[in-house]
Design a protein around this nucleic acid. Structure first.
Lengths: 216, 216, 216, 216
DNA sequence: GATGAATGAGATTTCATTCAT
DNA sequence: AATGAATGAAATCTCATTCAT
């Protein structure tokens, strides 16, 4: 249990006002939601796992739904944080010589992040389709901001003649799919398999850059 | 409502013994499960939507869970059908001259299939993580069979010198990610966007084959 | 318990579709609401008293509030029924020679009605201030219709020179107060006292007509 | 909020030891109890409205019930105060020449009182049927004392030949009904209507004295 | 086969009250 | 005195499932 609580601190660090019990509630909720899904997790179960009275949950969160949103909303923000202006400037300011390096850095960064926050990410993925609030936030954050920023990057490297001249949106979709597919396989589908993470990331970048056909 | 029922017929055609009411129950369940999730859908809701009495559902399906499995199990089979021996032989028997053509054909085929069965696919995706029976079936079908077959294909074209010499599993993951990403974006994330399906598939295949870097 | 159930039949006679259990629920709810008030009565208490499972209540009434309204709404209608056009015409068609006779008949009629429906009347009185829906209905029925009709009667007898020429509304208020005071005292405040009902109604009519001062 | 607090001071003046917070609690409780009823008002609601912590309420009042009684008990005493010996003697000592003047004075006095204490009066009316302690106090004060005193007055004026020779209890009931009906209509049913209070009281007294029939 | 009333276990939520600070 | 986190009992409500008709 001490592990999730540490993660809680990272994730909710801005909320310094968290009681010890509140943290235990969050940790328990995250664990259960990830394991059985939001709808199939009962608040009494969470209370028991957290070692608090059921009423205590509702003293801090008006409803079970609010508990879910409290858990999942900051995750969404952090997930796309590297795409906010500040971080992004590193790219545009030539911090990365070419798109390949940029890709590799980004994948490594997000892989580390997901590794530390798998349960939260699972909950997010599972619940987005069913919670209109989340869908809304997702569209706003990902759809509007991230894609926009990503496009800037792609166009930047297209301008430098490093990336093929296809519609940026197609390139983004293709790139994100490869990354997402890598991470999902690594952490969700086959977390127990033998992985050489470095190597697999390297291969993915290579495939992204040059495709699967035998080059010439 | 008549649309889903037609789909029901396609999907459950082998079960010719389906009553009109049974079809209505299946259609209603599919619609609700896809929209709100299995756990958040009540049987009484399904009954109302199907226009039958609550008890009638349980006359045909021993439990709510059985109803879910009835719905989702054939979907899984059909989803991977093209990878069973018979169809696959077409590939190996040179039906497709090169991997690129094979890819294109496969994507088009599966895209059509998903288009006709989106709600079922959604339910499958949502519930696999939570239903051990499904997880089991999925591993067996996809993990065991499909990957195995796909590997055969990859190795086949590697042997012909058309595909790069990386571990087949990495190539499969990369390829499947691109396809899955395309279809998910097309049918789940942005079903209402303006799409030139032909074109987008063409681009995806091109990217898969040659990557995003400016080739030479 | 058989007594309230008979009353239920009278009150809800139009709803022929009432299950035996539904009737028992209504009877139990009426008894408890009257005795302890709506807010202080729990649904589990009602279920126990009615001898049904708690869920059964909610199968028939979506919420506790709906149960209350189901009980109380028809009461309101019946309470003011004698003032609907048809009955009222008897008055205007000289069925009653003078206002005194009209008054006496009306009081006797409503007294009998209340006697048979005391608990319902109590609930109505108690809950009107707190339930906006009831307040609304009350205003519509009493405020709009009854007062209007009553005014017609008063003006009718004013025209015949039998009633003093004061504003009808003041006369109505005064008359209704006297009647309401009589009935409330008789059935709510001192139901166990020794009453000669005939006589007391007679006295009330006399006081209404001639006041308390020594006439001349 | 300052208004109710002023009223608190009037009502609870004898309890000089009231903290600012205590006053705020009382004011909040009165407001909520009157509006939603005792049972439907939560202590946390009162605390919020009063701007104090939940625990603070229980520091001053052992329980929610005690808070109610604290509020309502003095109201009952004040409501019937004019009927205690001292005030009553004014009547018997010919302070009022005739019953009519007495009536008018009394109505005016009680009307003013109610006007200043409507919420308290409402609470009293609503809760008497459900709180045995209140019922008891009410019977003792009203039933025993007030009626007794009122009977003395009535018999006094009957002796002087000013009031008709009917059973005093009937006369009291009739008179009180008229007064209560006037005040309830004025302050509860239609507080927003256009009222000429003077005039309406005058009319009520007239009707009480001479009835509604055309006198001779 | 079909119905829908009934169930009872359990889910979410409320709330008066206590208590450590 | 005051706070407000915590409690746990109880309240309202939901729902998969059964069963008599």
């Amino acid at each position: 249990m001490s592990e999730p609580i540490k993660m809680i601190d990272e994730m909710f660090d801005f909320d310094e006002g968290l009681t010890e019990k509140q943290k235990r509630i969050l940790a328990a909720a995250i664990e259960s939601f990830a394991e059985k899904g939001y709808a199939a997790t009962s608040t009494s179960e969470i209370a028991k796992k957290a070692g608090v009275a059921e009423g205590t949950i509702f003293r801090h969160y008006k409803s079970k739904k609010e508990l879910l949103l409290t858990i999942v909303a900051p995750m969404m923000a952090k997930l796309v944080a590297p795409f906010v202006i500040k971080d992004l400037n590193k790219v545009l300011n030539q911090e990365y010589e070419n798109f390949e390096e940029f890709l590799k850095a980004m994948i490594e960064n997000r892989a580390k992040f997901l590794k530390n926050n798998m349960p939260l990410f699972q909950i997010l993925m599972q619940e987005i389709p069913f919670q209109p609030e989340l869908k809304e936030q997702f569209k706003e954050h990902i759809g509007a901001k991230v894609i926009e920023r990503f496009r800037t990057v792609v166009e930047h490297y297209q301008g430098k003649g490093q990336i093929i001249e296809l519609p940026p949106f197609s390139i983004i979709r293709f790139t994100v799919s490869a990354i997402f597919g890598l991470l999902a396989t690594r952490y969700l589908l086959a977390p127990d398999a033998d992985w050489d993470d470095e190597e697999e990331i390297q291969r993915t970048v290579q495939l992204l850059m040059h495709g699967i056909s035998v080059g010439r």
